[in-house]
Nucleic acid binder design. Structure first.
Lengths: 258, 258
DNA sequence: CGATGGCTTGAGGGTATTCAAGTGACGTGG
DNA sequence: CCACGTCACTTGAATACCCTCAAGCCATCG
């Protein structure tokens, strides 16, 4: 249920090199030389937070940011009527709370653990210092942010144009171990209700849309377990309509101005 | 129709200080000392592009990025069936094409002018060089990106929870000159069809939703001209439902999440 | 063994989409 | 100058899709 990387196990053991292994997991530190990563070693703290734990709330003064080594955290806004608006779901390799750096050290959204996480927490001021004093660190930060944002952009824009079953299909494909084109088995990362929220749909709608997917693509979902015999079928269901919408419908010539 | 800042007029005149004035308009250069901005002066080129001009296509090798001084550019993906998926709309102060820096110098989306723009184009390699060699430049870049992304996140997440008329209301409020609380008059920035696309709705739906807005908030739209007598009315229509749980506004109360 | 929470399923209703026709503004060419 | 086509926009009717409310199922847990 909880994704504990082996490297993280070593990290919590408290050895000197432990953090280094854990830190290298983060995209933020991907291309950095060990020497730079090591500068975070002394101030880094490995911890485990249980499902439900609130890392911070919108508006809080920000002291730490977190590197996720496993599990899931949701970022969200709380509206005046108490409803939540989910902004992002983060997992292994992602950063949490780092954006406060550019927002006057205030968190601009709330963060809560939704599946037990293992994290490394680091004071924001250290990150700030390193970014201000190390070129490579600043560049690394830039590319990490840029990459994450680009992905997120794509997902959101795509989701806006898809039906509920397609959005779910998309979500599943992102989780798919993409080694084989044959049969695939994996687990849903968190509650179906939460997946529904993430995808911007109702719990009830999610359930129905899932049935539609079962019908159209032959996948099986029992509890949190997902089995897909023919991944291509799912891919075609999700992206097919966009590739073959109107092959014979020459009526509606799409706009072109260039 | 076209937004030509006075500072830009000076820029195209070719004076030494001209670019500097134009560049300072960009959020990217907001807090930078003149000395740093000046390093871009020699390589910067002020230009005007007409509606319809394609700045680049997805996958193109990226040579330049652009600082927008006025007008509008849309970022989009082209799907296999020829449909477009709009990712972002950019205007005065925004950067276009800079993200290729972190994507192997390839553009990850296409960019097209939708309302005549005045831009300053700068070789990406220069930006790359400055970021790699100047602390403040790297930091500036980070905060510019971070700011833009946070705004964009909020908009998209919010839009996902709103009805068509509310989304339009939101869009209009963003354009509203926020000085007075009295009567407000301004112009729509670009085609209604394009606004509809941006907001993820049908052209027909946009038209109908607009009528609903007229009815509920008393605003007037003739052609591209918008008149709002009581802005508060619009604000309440857009954000009211979220602030007041369900005060038996049973008619237009919209989707929520747990 | 009830209670809770996650999930499913049914019925009903509302909103947005599609298809389609029609209007008006604009530019072009006769 | 006007006929004409194009394009943006509006409007109507029928439909698809998703939401809400509500009941029922099943597992977990005290």
């Amino acid at each position: 249920m909880v994704l504990l990387a082996a490297s993280f196990e070593r990290a919590v053991s408290g050895q000197q090199a432990g953090h280094l292994a854990a830190l290298r997991n983060a995209r933020l530190f991907f291309d950095l030389p060990d020497a730079e990563i090591f500068r975070f070693n002394d101030v880094a703290q490995a911890r485990i937070y249980k499902k439900g734990k609130v890392l911070y709330l919108e508006g809080d003064a920000a002291e730490y940011f977190y590197i996720l080594c496993g599990g899931w955290v949701k970022l969200f806004h709380t509206m005046a009527n108490g409803d939540e608006m989910i902004v992002d779901m983060l997992t292994k390799g992602d950063l949490v709370g780092e954006s406060a750096l550019f927002e006057k050290d205030r968190h601009t959204s709330s963060a809560q653990v939704v599946e037990d996480v293992s994290v490394v927490s680091i004071p924001l001021r250290v990150l700030k210092d390193r970014i201000a004093n190390s070129q490579t660190m600043a560049l690394s930060m830039l590319s990490a942010l840029s990459l994450h944002h680009r992905r997120h952009y794509g997902e959101m824009a795509l989701n806006a144009t898809q039906s509920a079953p397609q959005r779910i299909g998309c979500f599943l494909l992102r989780l798919c171990p993409r080694d084989k084109t044959k049969k695939v088995v994996f687990q849903l990362p968190y509650d179906k209700t939460l997946i529904a929220d993430t995808l911007g749909m109702n719990g009830a709608t999610f359930s129905r849309a899932l049935n539609m997917l079962r019908l159209k693509t032959g996948l099986r979902i029992k509890g949190t377990s997902v089995e897909i015999d023919v991944v291509d079928k799912l891919i075609k269901f999700v992206y097919g309509p966009m590739a073959t919408k109107d092959l014979r419908d020459n009526k509606t010539e799409r706009r072109r101005k260039a």
